[in-house]
Design a protein around this nucleic acid. Structure first.
Length: 456
RNA sequence: GUGGGUAUAGCUCAGCUGGUAGAGCGCCGCCUUGUGGUGGCGGAUGUCGCGGGUUCGAGUCCCGUUACUCACCCCA
């Protein structure tokens, strides 16, 4: 038993696993940049009164304090529990130096003191993309930012994802048209649909929100609409509720679904799901939750939406729209299940063998020649028997071993096939797929939820 | 925060109604005096989570404690 015990909820990856995470983050970043989003990194801490706005997450905030602080001193700094709150502060603080609409992406850890579980950690990495405007932000940015995430995630070799969209205006307009007063509370109850049976939810609407049984029934009918295209518009209209805000919500949702379908490849589904609400009350239009096939138990692996007041300094309001992807939540279960793995735990593509300790300079020169052409390599640690040196490479997943012959010529051996050929350190190049550690994925584009479940 | 489970070698685990610590895999060496993987032979490794109690004797029983883990709650 080792003295060092793991800390629950603070996952650490082994080198090959970390290679997977790094490649995923690099891929996401490349796509975000392809769409013109700039990267920022915000500080880890925020003043606690800015983080704690009276929500449930308040007590989960990790506090940062000097060890030498006065015993009765009240902590002033807390670690951020998402990337949206720090971003809102960043926008206000640097508004004078930013160009609006401001498009940024951010990949950083966040901290939350919840009980850890599968896909749920106390320290976890998130990838956020947002667009924020000054005073106003045209609706087409909703389509844009959602499309960016659809594009980014569709490039990952992970199980099939489903983007499920809804629109707060649609819900609010519908409820208002029905004559329901407390829209927020009604939404919160409808959100329980995936846990409670429909009649139970209907009863709660009547008892807790004060709707009539007829109103509750219409709410349920709306919430059960789920289609992969804009045909939901007709189905909602068929429910016979009319409201100006409802019409606007229908138009927006239809546009988002159409726009995202256009960029979704064969790895990503796009749907309108009128039960999606999101618990947070600052969303004002588009809302989205992302689910992964075979991993429905993780709940959403991403989510976001439109907020008309991301930030405000009292004079200027900054509306925003964005979506966030749970990097740790998604990747760690996939790595644990063996769906994703790294091809090797070291970057080296070549191990340069060492004949004798006196020959180290010769081997180092070979390594330099390879490195000058961007080939990652390392020199063997000791002039052990070649069998040992090959085994050293094998253990680390290094695919090639380089030998300097007694006559000064060179040979390189692919230790997987055993094939050994003459080679020139100034010209030889490994096959493209061996240059860097890569992600090995058993998830296929055609895999469906059922396939993945059966494989578990 | 509430409730359950678990804690023994690097890893996965066995260890009966209490009798002095085990397997597989991995690791190291040799067979194999300069090209690995298969095979054979040999070898090393444990505060049995921690503290207390019962007992002639505790990995095993009792109490406490800590950590991990699963479920609920909630979220990425």
């Amino acid at each position: 038993m080792s003295r060092i015990a793991p800390l629950s909820g603070f996952p650490e990856l082994l080198p090959a696993q970390r290679a997977v995470e790094r490649e995923v983050i690099a891929s996401l970043s490349r796509t975000f940049e392809l769409h013109g989003f700039a990267n920022i990194e915000t500080r880890v801490v925020e003043p606690i009164d800015r983080l704690a706005k009276g929500g449930e997450v308040d007590k989960e905030i990790y506090v940062l304090q000097r060890l030498a602080a006065e015993p009765d001193a009240k902590a002033e700094l807390g670690m951020h529990f998402d990337l949206t709150v720090p971003f809102a502060r960043y926008v206000l603080e640097h508004a004078g130096h930013l160009e609006f609409p401001f498009r940024r992406f951010q990949v950083q850890p966040a901290w939350r003191g919840e009980r850890p579980q599968e896909g749920r950690f106390r320290q976890f990495t998130q990838a956020d993309v947002d667009i924020v405007g000054r005073d106003e932000l045209p609706f087409h940015h909703d389509i844009e930012v959602m499309s960016v995430m659809v594009d980014a995630l569709s490039r990952l070799a992970i199980p099939r994802l489903s983007f499920q969209f809804n629109n707060r205006k649609l819900i609010q307009g519908f409820y208002r048209g029905l004559g329901i007063d407390d829209v927020t509370d009604a939404i919160r109850v409808i959100d329980k649909l995936d846990k409670l049976p429909a009649d139970e939810v209907a009863r709660m609407l009547v008892e807790r929100v004060g709707t009539t049984p007829e109103q509750a029934q219409r709410c349920l009918e709306l919430a059960t609409i789920r289609v992969p295209d804009d045909s939901f518009v007709e189905r909602v209209r068929a429910l016979g509720v009319s409201d100006e805000l409802l019409d606007q919500g229908l138009d927006e949702l239809a546009a988002v679904v159409r726009g995202c379908r256009a960029v979704a490849g064969d790895r990503v589904d796009v749907e309108a799901n009128l039960r999606i609400a999101r618990g947070l009350d600052y969303y004002t239009g588009t809302v989205v939750e992302v689910f992964m096939a075979g991993y429905e138990r993780l709940k959403s692996v991403g989510g976001g939406g439109r907020y008309d007041a991301l930030a405000s300094d009292g004079r200027t309001t900054y509306p925003g729209v964005g979506v966030s992807f749970g990097v740790s939540r998604t990747l760690i279960p996939l790595i644990t299940d063996g769906v994703l793995s790294g091809s090797r735990p070291v970057p080296s593509a070549v191990l340069v063998a060492l004949n004798t300790e006196d020959d180290r300079a010769v081997s180092t020169q070979v390594a330099s020649a390879l490195r000058s052409r961007e080939i990652a390599c390392e020199v063997a640690p000791s002039p052990a028997k070649f069998g040992k040196q090959i085994r050293f490479a094998e253990r680390r997943g290094i695919p090639f071993v380089w030998f300097v012959q007694p006559d000064g010529s060179h040979q390189v051996k692919d230790i997987r096939s055993g094939e050994q050929v003459d080679a020139d350190p100034r010209a030889w190049t490994p096959p493209e797929e061996d240059v860097r550690p890569t992600i090995i994925s058993t998830a296929t584009p055609s895999s469906t939820a059922r396939d993945t479940e059966e494989n578990q």
